[in-house]
Structure formats: C-alpha cells, structure tokens
C-alpha cells in the first residue's frame, strides 16, 4: 500500500543572510504518522520547521501540504490550512490566562470552542485547574502542555513541535511524549524536532537525521535506534 503524504518538502533551502542553514533537503510526512527530525544544534531542524510555517522565507524549494504549495504564503494563511507549530521554548503568552492562551490558539476559528477546550483539558488536567492563572506563572512543564494544547485548539491536521522536551525534567519529558503519542493516536500527524534522540526515535514511525543543513540518514525509528552510527553520535553509546 502506498502511503498518502500530507506534507512533502522538496529541495528546500533556507538561508540567513549568506549563511545556508538548510541545504536542499527533501522529505515527506505520511498522513497519521509521527515523523522526527533529529540532529545536533545548528543542524537546520528548527529552520526547516520555521520555513514550513512561513516564519522564514525559503530560499528555494517547495513545501506541499495536502498537495497545496505553501512556500511564499504568509504564516496566518499557512496556519489556516491546518498546519501549526509548537515553537521552541514554548512561547506561551505570559500575560494571558491559561484559558485565553487556549482560546487564542483557536483564533481563526469561528465555531464553538467549548468542546475542544474540554478535550484539551481532559488531555491536560493541570491546565483545567489553572485556567484562570496567567500563563507566565506556570512551571516549564505546564507551559509546554499549554503550548501543545494551544496548538491543538486550531484543530490542525499536522502539528509540528520544536524541541518539546527542552529544559524539562526527565519525568515531565516522559509525560510530553505520552501526550504526543496520544494526540497521534487521535489522528493528528506529527512532525517532531528533537535533540533528545532516544525519546524521539522511540516515538517515531519515520525518522530523519540532519547534520549541517542536510539530511544524512533516514529510516524507521527502530532502525535508527539500532544503528551504530546513531548510537555513537546521538544516543551516547560507544561503537562496539
């Protein structure tokens, strides 16, 4: 059975001034799967996500979402199509309450939100308890939950996450990954960028390794977990 790809990136390049952060990469995200991009700092992972959602203008290449070209569109137009990004460092609005943060995630929607607010609160019971608190007063883990919940409020078909485990305690990281799997189980396609390669590969159906702006390796999550080079470079295990 051939896979249906919801997101297809071909020959994408992104540069900042003269510096090329992403060099001619191509990959595709099958509908309903978890795909991860792993790699070290500065490998171009975040730039790739930012280009997909229109925060950086691609220097070249094409980004197709459900067959539609996204390159060149403005961020609000891209988000409206049903693809969203949970940004690196969470970036919840500290001056808005938890509930307002969820509501603003659904900014483009005009229908009733109460059902989805309930759904997100079921996923993250902590947010419900704190719905009247300003988001700036939440702990790091709670802010990450809120950032994911906020993204879910737009009812995306693809959700991209940039380092959701960054700066969180190991037990909280486990919680974040459980949620990622749960969201995916409910039918949302996930493109995950991580430095925590171990966790990301365990969660992923398909994985790509980025190094200095290029994709150097790909395979299923389990394949890469078993790969000796990956073990040495990203999982902290020495080669036999």
């Amino acid at each position: 059975m051939s896979k249906e790809y919801i997101l297809e990136i071909s020959n994408l390049s992104v540069s900042y001034g003269g510096i090329k952060a992403v060099k001619d990469i191509s990959f595709a995200v099958p509908k309903g799967e978890v795909v991860t991009l792993i790699g070290a700092n500065g490998a171009g992972k975040s730039s790739t996500l930012r280009a997909i959602v229109g925060l950086e203008k691609p220097a070249a290449g094409s980004i197709k979402f459900a067959g539609e070209e996204l390159a060149g569109l403005s961020t609000d137009a891209i988000v409206e199509k049903g693809i969203t990004l949970v940004p690196e460092g969470r970036r919840v609005f500290p001056n808005l309450t938890v509930l307002e943060n969820l509501k603003i995630g659904a900014y483009m929607r005009k229908d009733d939100l109460s059902k989805d607010i309930e759904w997100v609160c079921d996923l993250f019971p902590r947010l419900k308890e704190r719905s009247w608190q300003k988001a700036g007063t939440l702990s790091g883990g709670e802010q990450q939950m809120l950032a994911i919940g906020r993204a879910l409020m737009s009812k995306p078909s693809v959700i991209m996450m940039d380092e959701p485990s960054l700066g969180l305690a190991p037990i909280v990281v486990q919680g974040v990954f459980d949620i990622i799997k749960e969201i995916n189980r409910q039918g949302v396609t996930i493109l995950l960028v991580e430095q925590n390669a171990n966790m990301a590969l365990k969660a992923a159906d398909q994985a790509y390794v980025m190094e200095t702006g290029r994709i150097t390796m790909s395979g299923t999550g389990t394949e890469l977990l078993e790969n000796d080079d990956i073990k040495a470079a990203y999982l902290g295990k020495s080669k036999k």
Partner: peptide, 13 residues
C-alpha cells in the same frame, strides 16, 4: 504586544 512571531503562529494577522 508580547510576541509577534507566536501571534502569527496563532493565525493572527
């Protein structure tokens, strides 16, 4: 007022 970029990600013009 807090964050242009994240506001854009919410679909805010």
């Amino acid at each position: 007022s807090k964050d242009f970029e994240t506001a854009r990600l919410m679909g805010i013009k």
